[in-house]
C-alpha cells in the first residue's frame, strides 16, 4: 500500500500552549512494498513522522494518503479510524502497552476493536503467537508473568494480529541483547516479505539500515533532507556528519582500510558479508 505525503505541516498542541512546528512542509512518496528506514538525530521528528501514518498526529496543513485513505485536518475524525485499520504500529518498548489478564486477550484486543468476531480473533491469536515463535501454552498466561523478551514478542503479536498492510516500527529492538534484537528484526523482516507489507523502520542502528532497508529517509529539524538507497546515503560523507548520523560498521572499517592501505575496494560495502567479499576480491585478505 502506497503512502503519500503532500506538504504536510504538523505540531503538538499541549493545553493552551501550542508547540512550534514539528514537521515542516513534508512531501514524499513511500512505495508500496518497500522497506524504508527513517534515521536522524534525536528530536529530528522521526517518531512524529511515523505518527502521521495512522493519525496519532494530524496534519495542520497538507494531506497524508494511505492507499485510498486521505487524512487532512478537516476530515481527520473519520479518515483516521480507517487508517488505523491498515497501519500496524510497534512503538518503542511496546511491552509497556500490555494490559489484559491473559496474553490471548491482549492479542485479541486490536482485532476486536476493529470488529473481528471473538472466535476469529481467538484463531488469529493462536496463529500469530506461533508465528512470533512462542509456544501456544503462553496464551493463557498473564503477560506480566513473562520475561522481558517474551513480553516484547507478545506486544508485537498484538500488532501483527491486526493484519496491517503497513507496518510502522519505532526502534523495535531497543534494549534487547544482540541475539534477541536480531531475532526480532529478522521476524519483522520476514513478515514484511511474506505479506508484501509496506514497512517504515525508525532506527539509530545504521547496521539495521544496511541489512534490511531498501530505501532510507533522513530527517533533520522536522524536514526530510534525504531519501534514496542506503548505498547512496553512506557515500555522502560530509552530509552524514552534518545530519548527525553514523556509518554502518562495515562501511566505517572499509573507509579506514582504504585510507591506511591506500587502495579502493571495488564497491561500497555496508554489511559484513559484502565487506568480506570485497576484501577477498581486492586481494587484501
Amino acid at each position: 500500500m502506497q503512502i503519500n505525503l503532500q506538504q504536510v505541516t504538523a505540531d503538538y498542541q499541549a493545553g493552551p500552549i501550542r508547540s512550534p512546528e514539528i514537521l515542516k512542509s513534508i512531501s514524499t512518496t513511500i512505495k508500496s512494498g518497500s522497506f524504508t528506514a527513517v534515521v536522524g538525530k534525536t528530536g529530528s521528528g522521526k517518531s512524529s513522522l511515523l505518527k502521521l501514518m495512522n493519525g496519532l498526529l494530524v496534519p495542520v496543513k497538507g494531506q497524508v494518503s494511505i492507499g485510498e485513505i486521505m487524512i487532512t485536518s478537516e476530515n481527520a475524525k473519520q479518515s483516521v479510524k480507517e487508517a488505523r485499520r491498515k497501519v500496524g504500529m510497534v512503538f518503542q518498548f511496546p511491552e509497556s502497552q500490555l494490559f489484559a489478564e491473559t496474553v490471548e486477550k491482549d492479542i485479541m484486543f486490536g482485532p476486536m476493536n476493529f470488529g473481528v468476531p471473538k472466535a476469529e480473533a481467538k484463531e488469529i491469536a493462536l496463529e500469530v503467537i506461533e508465528r512470533v515463535g512462542l509456544d501456544a501454552t503462553i496464551l493463557s498466561k498473564s503477560p506480566f508473568a513473562l520475561s522481558g523478551g517474551q513480553k516484547r514478542y507478545v506486544a508485537m503479536a498484538g500488532i501483527l494480529a491486526m493484519r496491517p498492510d503497513i507496518l510502522v516500527l519505532d526502534e523495535p529492538g531497543a534494549g534487547l541483547d544482540p541475539k534477541g534484537k536480531k531475532e526480532v528484526m529478522d521476524l519483522l523482516h520476514a513478515w514484511h516479505k511474506e505479506r508484501g507489507l509496506t514497512t517504515l523502520l525508525v532506527t539509530h542502528d545504521m547496521d539495521d539500515v544496511a541489512l534490511y532497508a531498501d530505501e532510507v529517509i533522513v530527517m533533520d529539524e522536522g524536514r526530510i533532507v534525504f531519501q534514496d538507497e542506503p548505498e547512496r546515503l553512506f557515500s555522502e560523507m560530509t552530509a552524514i556528519h552534518q545530519w548527525g548520523l553514523e556509518l554502518p560498521q562495515a562501511r566505517k572499517l572499509q573507509i579506514r582500510i582504504e585510507q591506511e592501505a591506500n587502495v579502493r575496494l571495488p564497491r561500497i560495502c555496508l554489511t559484513l558479508d559484502k565487506l568480506a567479499d570485497a576484501l577477498i576480491e581486492a586481494g587484501l585478505a
Binding site: A250, L253, I257, L279, I280, A285
Partner: peptide, 30 residues
C-alpha cells in the same frame, strides 16, 4: 564486529590468523 569479520574471512578461505584480533591488528594485517 571485527571478530565476526575475521571468522567470515577465514571461512571464505583467507589466510587470516586463526586468533582474535583487535581492530588495529586487523587493519594492520590487511
Amino acid at each position: 564486529f571485527i571478530e565476526a569479520l575475521r571468522r567470515k574471512l577465514k571461512k571464505q578461505g583467507s589466510t587470516i590468523p586463526d586468533k582474535y584480533m583487535t581492530e588495529d591488528e586487523m587493519v594492520w594485517w590487511l
